[in-house]
Amino acid sequence: MTNDSRPGMDIPETAQLPYRPCVGIVLINPDGRIFTARRSDTPEAWQMPQGGIDPGEAVDAAAFRELHEETGVSNARILDRMPEWVTYDLPEHLIGKVWGGRYRGQKQMWVAMAHDGDDRDIDLAHHAPEFDAWRWSTPEMVLADIVPFKRGVYSRILDQFSPYFVQR
């Protein structure tokens, strides 16, 4: 069977690609709001910080590294972790175009972190910027603003960490 969006790539080949190991961070401010940032390469998409786990790197170390690289924040602490890894598959039109075509999607471990500083700590240009704007969001805003193929994963994450959010 051939996949129409990628001539010559059959579905079994795509299914055999591995998932990219990744950490995701739900950064929560003292008001119970969630940090989200707008992707500079996809302006209609807002997401929480996340990124690859380096070979041999512990999940917690990756979470602190990615948080600092993407937001400039280093004044945070881990509150909780997902009880299991979550996965998502890329849409077919993105397979082969991101991550060097080596992965079918991501296998993520999500952590909830408290932001113990203030908004002045946030610096999107601190490292190689992936984002061009940020805000503190409600869970509803997070789900409304994430790209559709990640919405199911984000729903699970937000359900897991809901005791940490202010429900208004």
Rank of each mutant, 00 (worst) to 15 (best):
M1E: 13
M1F: 14
D4K: 09
G8I: 01
D10C: 14
L17W: 01
Y19E: 02
P21A: 09
V23N: 04
I25K: 03
L27M: 09
I28F: 05
N29I: 00
P30S: 07
D31P: 12
D31T: 14
G32S: 06
R33P: 07
R33K: 13
R33C: 06
I34V: 00
T36M: 10
A37D: 11
T42N: 13
A45G: 13
W46K: 03
Q47H: 08
M48V: 07
Q50D: 15
Q50A: 15
D54M: 13
V59P: 04
F64P: 07
F64E: 11
R65G: 04
E69N: 15
E70D: 13
G72H: 03
V73Q: 03
S74W: 14
D80F: 07
R81N: 06
W85C: 12
T87G: 05
Y88D: 11
Y88I: 01
E92Q: 09
H93W: 05
L94R: 05
I95L: 03
I95R: 14
G96H: 01
G96K: 00
K97R: 13
K97W: 03
G100M: 06
G101V: 04
Y103M: 02
G105T: 11
M109G: 12
A112Y: 02
M113Y: 06
H115D: 09
G117A: 10
D119A: 02
D119M: 09
D119R: 06
D123T: 11
D123G: 02
L124I: 12
E130A: 13
F131A: 06
E140D: 15
V142E: 04
L143D: 08
A144R: 06
D145P: 08
D145L: 12
I146H: 10
V147G: 09
P148M: 12
G152E: 09
Y154A: 07
R156F: 04
I157F: 05
L158C: 01
L158V: 08
D159M: 05
Q160V: 00
F161E: 01
Y164W: 05
F165Q: 01
V166R: 13
